[in-house]
Structure formats: C-alpha cells, structure tokens
Design a protein around this nucleic acid. Structure first.
Length: 385
DNA sequence: AAAGAATTTCCTGATT
DNA sequence: GAATCAGGAAATTCTT
C-alpha cells in the first residue's frame, strides 16, 4: 500500500563509504540509483556485495539537490558537538530523530521532522505546547505525538540546562577545544547577535560537507548495511578511524551513556522506498532553495502548486535519477499516472498548475513560498519598494 | 525469484 | 508552430 503521508522519506540503510578522505559526494546521497544501461554499478540493496560497488561520483558543485531526498542528512551527529543555539536546521532534525528513536523507539517516519527544520535557537524558544503541536503527524495517534513532543521538550531543556551549567563551571570546553567554535560561548550569552544569526544561516549547506562524506553512526541501522568500522557503537567520526586528543575531549562533552540505548531494537525500521514523484514535488515546495524560484504554491490551502521553471524541475528529477534525458514532458507523464489514485489532481483551467490530491503527501508548512515576514525586510526594501 | 508498482519512453491527438 | 496536456502502450526499473 502506498503511504504518501510520509514526508522526507529517509533511508535507514547506510551504505558503504570508502574510508579514505576526502571523498566526493556520493550519488546515493540522492537515494537514487543508476539505470542499468551501464554495466552493473551497484550491489543489491539487500546483500553485502559492496566489493563490486563501482561507486559513481558526482561533481561536488552539482551536488546541490542533496536535501530533497537525502537520507544521510538526518543521521549526522554534528549536533553532538555544538551547543543548541548553534544547531542548524539539519542539526535540529538529526537530534530529534535520534532522541525519539533512542528514548521511545520511534523511527523517523513517525516524526514530522519537516516541522522541525528550524535552528536550535528557534527550537529553544519554543514552548512545550508548540513542540507538541509541531509533533502532530497524520499517521500517528495524537496522544502518542503528544508523548513524543513532551519527551523531546524535556530532553531539550535538560540539554539546555546542562549547557548552562557547563558555561558556569570551571570546565571551559570552548577554550580547551580548538574544534569548538569560540563564538559558541558568546552565542549563549548573546542570543540576538546578528553576527550569530548570519553565521547560522551561512552554515546551511556546503558541498562536500562532512555529513555527506562520512558514514554516520546510527544505532537504528540494520547491521547488514554497516561496515565493520561503523557497526561499532564507538564508531569514529574521523575517516581514518583515529581520534586525536581534541576529538577525544570533544567526545567527552556529550558522551553517549554506556549500554544499549533505550528503545533501540524495539522497532525495526525497514528500508523505505526511494522518493516518488509527488514526494519529490512536495520536497521542492518545502525547500526555499527551490520554492518559489522553480516551483511555488499557487494555493497552499488547496495543495495547488505551479511550475515556474518546469524544465528545471524535470532536470532536477533527471539529475537525481541519473537520467540526463529527462524532460518535463516525460516528468509530467509520470505525474499524470498519479491522477488515478488521487495523489495528484489535474487543474484544467491553468497550465503548469497541479494539485495534490487527498491521497497526496503531507505538505503542511507554516510559511508557503517562504514569504519574508516584515521584521526580516531590509530597511532598504521598506524605503525603496 | 516473481509479481506488482512506479517510472520512462514514445506516441497520437487536443488545446492554448 | 511551440508548449502543454491527456492518456495508451510497452519497456524498464524498483520494491516487496
């Protein structure tokens, strides 16, 4: 049965990554795989045949689509080495996914983490009810969502309190750790610093960033998809497996408690299918990198959206599917196949306008088309309309 | 391994 | 005439 209500399908299976840095961004960060027009280039998902995996490479500069379908993105552990106010949107989501998995045994399909694509600073400002409300998921019982939201809120504030204590203690980790950004200390004290805000936004995405290059350590993974290196709970974040003294110290900051995490193993998350056309469109629409520049909401309340640059969207799809021959004509044919099940609905009156049907993906967002709020307008914008 | 779902490719014809 | 839309048919790819 189809389950289109899952936002941002995640790949629980971490595939082999070569241990030698620096590695190029991998195509499987896109969660799509090369067609068989070329020699057999990838091992079966379900075996361990990675020896024959002739890893395709992609130019880092073109690797701008990772967050549409990336699964590894939210299994990064960079948040572990940052204070909450320094968390990027990805860090926030990674933390929530891991916390929900470890504390309650939930896997990420059950967390509406698209609602939590916010910075750590924004997360810290949320009230408990806000967190619970954002945790609402179409597939999850509201009482369960409330429980998750409750736990997440408490874990967050436990962490924030720990950070406060750390600040006031003799243990000045920021000074002792060259990897820890010194500004992190400042940001705790000066939350409204514009500089800090800019830095947060600037850290959004970098091609070839560490999260794409290094296999994360994810306790919820099926062992069959791990290498011997990453299978260890003490899996290293250094690509060569070695840890410097600094890294050791960094590790101690937010050391994972010994033993098997609560909830791990309670649930087995199967590897999800790759992203479907409707999900791909929804992901574009929920991403400011692509919305409203190449696709935008025509009427968000009705799920209507418009292709601004149809060829660009098709090209993106083709890039992800490793298919240089993709065109909007073919892409739209794939879209039209989703009419039958009311996942998509045609809008006859307007060209390049489509609509998510009642079986379509969840496209909830607080800010369709990422319209700037008044306070974010530049003074010049106000004076020179 | 097989079946079914999803997608791709190509096509005809209609509409804007 | 170009772009878009609708959908049939067959092949291919992916998922279960």
């Amino acid at each position: 049965m189809l389950d289109y209500a899952r936002p941002y399908e995640q790949n629980m299976c971490e595939l082999y990554l070569p241990p030698t840095p620096p590695a190029p961004a991998r195509l499987d960060d896109f969660q799509v795989f090369r067609k068989s027009t070329t020699p057999y280039v990838y091992g079966s998902y379900y075996n361990n045949n990675y020896d024959v995996y002739n890893e395709p490479e992609v130019d880092a500069a073109t690797n701008v689509y990772h967050n549409l379908v990336s699964t590894r993105e939210y299994h990064r552990d960079e948040w572990k080495y940052k204070v909450v106010v320094d968390w990027t949107e990805d860090d926030t989501v990674s933390w929530i996914v891991e916390t929900a998995a470890q504390c309650m045994g939930f896997c990420e399909y059950e967390i509406p983490f698209y609602n939590f694509r916010i910075t750590g600073m924004e997360l810290g400002n949320l009230k408990k009810e806000d967190v619970i409300q954002k945790m609402g998921h179409p597939n999850i019982d509201p009482s369960v969502s409330r429980r998750i939201g409750d736990t997440i809120f408490e874990k967050l504030h436990t962490r924030l309190n720990e950070e406060m204590l750390r600040q006031s203690s003799v243990f000045r980790y920021a000074e002792s750790d060259p990897y820890q950004n010194h500004e992190a200390v400042q940001t705790v004290l000066d939350l409204d610093s514009l500089d800090h805000k800019n830095r947060l936004y600037a850290s959004d995405y970098k091609p070839n960033d560490a999260g794409l290059l290094h296999p994360p350590c994810d306790s919820s993974d099926d062992d069959v998809f791990r290498t011997s290196e990453t299978a260890s709970p003490e899996c290293s974040y250094g690509s060569d497996g070695s840890k410097s003294g600094d890294e050791e110290e960094k590790r101690k900051m937010f050391k994972r408690p010994p033993g098997r995490p609560k909830g791990s193993g309670r649930k087995v998350c199967k590897r999800p299918r790759s992203v479907s056309v409707p999900e791909f469109l929804r992901n574009l629409l929920l991403d400011p990198k692509y919305c409203p520049s190449i696709i935008k909401w025509e009427d968000h309340s009705q799920g209507k959206f418009r292709f601004v640059k149809p060829d660009e969207v098709a090209k993106l799809w083709g890039t992800m599917k490793q298919n240089d021959n993709m065109t909007f004509e073919k892409f739209s044919r794939a879209m039209r196949y989703h009419y039958r099940q009311s996942v998509l609905v045609s809008v006859p009156t307007a060209r390049l306008v489509y609509q998510f049907g009642h079986k379509g993906p969840d496209f909830k967002t607080d800010n369709p088309n990422f319209v700037k709020v008044k306070s974010e307008f530049d003074v010049h914008d106000m004076t020179h309309p």
